[in-house]
C-alpha cells in the first residue's frame, strides 16, 4: 500500500516539475516537436478520415445541393455586378487618395499556414498551426482566409508551430464598424458558440444583413478585414447599448489553409 502512495506522490511531483519546466519555457520545444511529429505521422490517418467525411457529407447534403446551387448562382450574378462597380470606385479612391496625399492601405506580408489539429476540448476556440517563430509568426498576429476574412489571432508561438484563438473564442474582442452606416462597436467571441457585436450606441443604426469590418482602432488589426454580418439584433431600446448576433463570414469548422498577417 505504501508503494501505491509513493507512486501517486511521484506522479504529482513529476507534474509539478513539468509545470515548472513549461513556465520556464524549457518544455515548449518538446511540445513543438511532438506537434510537428504528429502532423507528419498523421497523414495516413487523416486521408481515409477525409474520404469518410466527404462520402457521408455528399449523402447528407444531396437534397440541399440543388437549392444551394440556385442560391449561389444568383449570388454570383449579384456579386459580379457589385465587383465591377467596386473596381471602378477603388480606382477612383486610389486616385483621390494620392491626389490628396492620404496614406494608402497598408499591405502586410502573408505567411501561409495549415491547421495541424484542433483543441480536443474546445475545437471551436483554438487550433494549432504549422507555422511558428522561425517563420516570423508572433503573438497577436491576425489570421485571415482568402477574401480578407479575419478568422483568428495568434495566441501562442513555438519554434515550428503556433496556436490560434478562433474569433468565436471567449478571449477575442475586436473593434469593428458596420457597413453601411459606420456604427462602431466591439465584436466578442461567445465561448466557441458564435460572435456578438456589442457596445453600439443607441444613436447608431444597425440592421440585419449589415457587414462588419475591422475598424483598425487599437492597431492590432488592419482595417477593413471582413468579420461577418449582423444576423439578429438582440438588445431592446431600453438598454444602454445595442447588441447583435453576428453570422461569421466563413465557417470556422471548415478552415484549412490560412494566412498569418505579419506587421
Amino acid at each position: 500500500m505504501f508503494s501505491t502512495y509513493v507512486h501517486i506522490l511521484l506522479a504529482f511531483l513529476l507534474l509539478a516539475v513539468l509545470v515548472f519546466l513549461y513556465v520556464s519555457a524549457v518544455l515548449g520545444p518538446v511540445i513543438d516537436w511532438v506537434r510537428v511529429g504528429v502532423d507528419f505521422i498523421n497523414v495516413p490517418v487523416v486521408a481515409p478520415l477525409k474520404l469518410i467525411k466527404n462520402f457521408f457529407g455528399v449523402i447528407f447534403d444531396l437534397k440541399n445541393i440543388a437549392a444551394e446551387n440556385a442560391l449561389l448562382t444568383k449570388q454570383v450574378e449579384d456579386l459580379t455586378s457589385e465587383v465591377a462597380g467596386l473596381d471602378r470606385a477603388k480606382e477612383e479612391n486610389e486616385f483621390l487618395r494620392s491626389a490628396l496625399g492620404f496614406q494608402t492601405t497598408d499591405s502586410r506580408e502573408l505567411v501561409p499556414a495549415e491547421i495541424i489539429s484542433r483543441d480536443f476540448q474546445n475545437p471551436d476556440q483554438k487550433v494549432v498551426l504549422n507555422r511558428g517563430q522561425k517563420h516570423g509568426v508572433a503573438v497577436g498576429d491576425p489570421v485571415i482566409v482568402s477574401g480578407n476574412i479575419l478568422v483568428g489571432v495568434i495566441a501562442e508561438v513555438l519554434e515550428n508551430t503556433s496556436a490560434m484563438d478562433i474569433l468565436s473564442s471567449s478571449k477575442i474582442a475586436i473593434n469593428a464598424l458596420v457597413v453601411p452606416g459606420g456604427a462602431n462597436g466591439l465584436v466578442r467571441g461567445e465561448h466557441g458558440l458564435g460572435l456578438t457585436f456589442d457596445l453600439v450606441s443607441q444613436n447608431e443604426v444597425i440592421n440585419q444583413g449589415d457587414r462588419l469590418l475591422t475598424s483598425g482602432l487599437g492597431g492590432q488589426f488592419p482595417k477593413d478585414l471582413l468579420i461577418g454580418e449582423i444576423s439578429r439584433i438582440v438588445s431592446s431600446e431600453s438598454e444602454l447599448f445595442q447588441r447583435a448576433s453576428v453570422l461569421p463570414a466563413t465557417n470556422y469548422r471548415n478552415l484549412n489553409l490560412l494566412f498569418i498577417m505579419k506587421p
Binding site: 498523421n42 487523416v46 478520415l49 495541424i116 489539429s117 480536443f120 475545437p123 471551436d124 470556422y252 469548422r253
Partner: peptide, 9 residues
Amino acid sequence: SASVKVFAS
C-alpha cells in the same frame, strides 16, 4: 487528433 482535425465539430 486526426479525427478532431477532420471532423472539426
